[in-house]
C-alpha cells in the first residue's frame, strides 16, 4: 500500500465515523462538531485528488463560516432531544434494512471491477505549480456561465425566502422614537381641567 492510499483510507475512515457521529450523537453540538470533522476529512480527500482550490474553499467556507454559524444557532436554540427522538426506534429496523441494501449494492457496483484502472486510466499528475484556481476560473465564466448564473439566482431566491419567512413587522411591539419624544410639547401631554372646588361635607 502506497503512502497516498494510506492517507486516503485513513481520511475515508475518519469521514465515515464522523458522518455516523452526526446522526447518532445525542447532543446537537456534538453532531455539529462531527459534521465539521466530516467536512475536514472530505477536504483532505479532495486534496489527494489535486482539487486544492475546492479543498481550501470547503475548509474556509463550510468549516470556518457556515458551521460556526450553525454551532451558534444550535447553542441558542433549546432543542428537546427526547421529543425529537420519539418514534425514532420504531423506524430503526426499517432504516437499517434500506441502508444495508444500499450499501450492498454500492459495494457490488462502485468497486474496482467497474471503476478500476483497467476501465479508466490513471489521470496524469499535474506539475507542482499547476494552478487549480486559474483552471476553475477559466471555465466558470465561459463554458459554465449559464449554470453559474442560475446558481446565483438560486442564492437570490434563498435570500428572498429566508427574509420573507423570518422578518416580521409586529404592530403590537412598543418602541421609542427619540426624535418624536424630543419634539413633544407640554400641550400634547398635559391637559389642565378646571374643576369646581368641592364643598366641605357637613
Amino acid at each position: 500500500m502506497s503512502f497516498t492510499e494510506g492517507v486516503f483510507y485513513a481520511f475515508s475512515a475518519i469521514m465515515i465515523m464522523a458522518a455516523l457521529g452526526v446522526i447518532t450523537a445525542r447532543n446537537p453540538v456534538h453532531s455539529a462538531l462531527s459534521l465539521v470533522l466530516t467536512f475536514f476529512a472530505t477536504s483532505a480527500i479532495w486534496m489527494l485528488l489535486e482539487a486544492e482550490f475546492l479543498a481550501i474553499t470547503l475548509v474556509l467556507v463550510y468549516v470556518g463560516a457556515v458551521m460556526v454559524l450553525f454551532l451558534f444557532v444550535v447553542m441558542m436554540l433549546d432543542i428537546n432531544i427526547t421529543r425529537m427522538r420519539e418514534g425514532f426506534m420504531r423506524y430503526v429496523p426499517f432504516g437499517i434494512v434500506i441502508a444495508l441494501i444500499l450499501v450492498v449494492q454500492m459495494v457490488m457496483i462502485v468497486g474496482p471491477e467497474n471503476f478500476g484502472l483497467e476501465q479508466f486510466a490513471e489521470p496524469a499528475r499535474h506539475v507542482a505549480d499547476h494552478s487549480n484556481t486559474k483552471e476553475l476560473g477559466r471555465v466558470l465564466y465561459t463554458d459554465y456561465v449559464y449554470p453559474f448564473e442560475i446558481a446565483a439566482v438560486i442564492l437570490l431566491v434563498a435570500i428572498v425566502a429566508a427574509i420573507s419567512l423570518t422578518m416580521r413587522r409586529r404592530p403590537e411591539t412598543k418602541y421609542q422614537t427619540p426624535g418624536k419624544q424630543v419634539m413633544v410639547k407640554k400641550e400634547d401631554r398635559l391637559r389642565v381641567v378646571s374643576m369646581k372646588a368641592e364643598e366641605k361635607e357637613k
Partner: peptide, 20 residues
C-alpha cells in the same frame, strides 16, 4: 447541471411559497 439547477430553483421557490 442546468437541469438540476433549474429544478432546485423551482423547488426552493415552492418550499418558501408553501410556508408563506
Amino acid at each position: 447541471l442546468s437541469l438540476y439547477l433549474g429544478l432546485e430553483l423551482l423547488s426552493l421557490s415552492l418550499y418558501a411559497m408553501v410556508a408563506f
